[in-house]
Amino acid sequence: MRMVAGCDVGSLATKAVIMERRRVVAAAIVRSGPKPAASAQAAMDQALAQAGCGLSDIAYCVGTGYGREKISFMNESLSEISCHGKGAQFLVPSARSVIDIGGQDCKVIRLDAKGSLVKFVTNDKCASGTGRFLEVMAKVLNIAVAELGELALKSRDPVTLASMCTVWAQADVIKHINARRPAEDICAGVNAAMANRVAMMANALQLENDICMTGGVAKNKGVVQALGRIMGKRIKEIRQIDPQLVGALGAALFASEKATKN
């Protein structure tokens, strides 16, 4: 059995995962450039180097993500919805629901016991409820996005952001900064606003347990916690790998099935 790969070209980050016998042997995350083909190549090259092999060693590659059609080295492409579902259930076998929050959209996915897609909703109407929202707010707060979650956990008195619109929420955050509210309280407010937005979509799909979160925003503990609280449900954490890699992992798992079948 040779190795298989999954490559997920997202709007903000491109991810590649290489698997052998359904074990992850290499993974890479690079920032997406203007050309999806080049980003895919860069991520894959990094992963290949890590695995110590070449493209010819990859028996099958499934591409996914916004720029998937541009990946030159893939055998097949699948939607990131299927891939996130697949990857999440591989990591958390009891998962029936997946909330994936990426850079520019948010997806809520329901799965059956076999990991097949039952139903999904996506938000790509605007930036609220996506990673972009957090990025913008972090910038206003002059902190790294990664800090948003940790800081928020320290908050004892979160602010209420009146607006969910990315533009107006910025003004709101500035208002709180000027009122000298502690950064952790503002961070907690930002996370709660984000979580409210996502919870509405999740509730529309009537999520069943267990729920897990994938995508870059899953790394933000503040959002995960707020989301669980608002929905009144516990969200299982993905510990084995970076949650941002789950789409690429799912793609690699599909590749593995194809390779086995061929």
């Binding site: 916004y66 492409s77 699948l78 939607s79 990131e80 919805i81 299927s82 097949s116 897609l117 039952v118 139903k119 999904f120 996506t122």
Partner: peptide
């Protein structure tokens, strides 16, 4: 297109 693809996969 992504959503249509996903729906067909569903």
């Amino acid at each position: 297109r992504m959503r249509i693809d996903a729906f067909l996969e569903q």
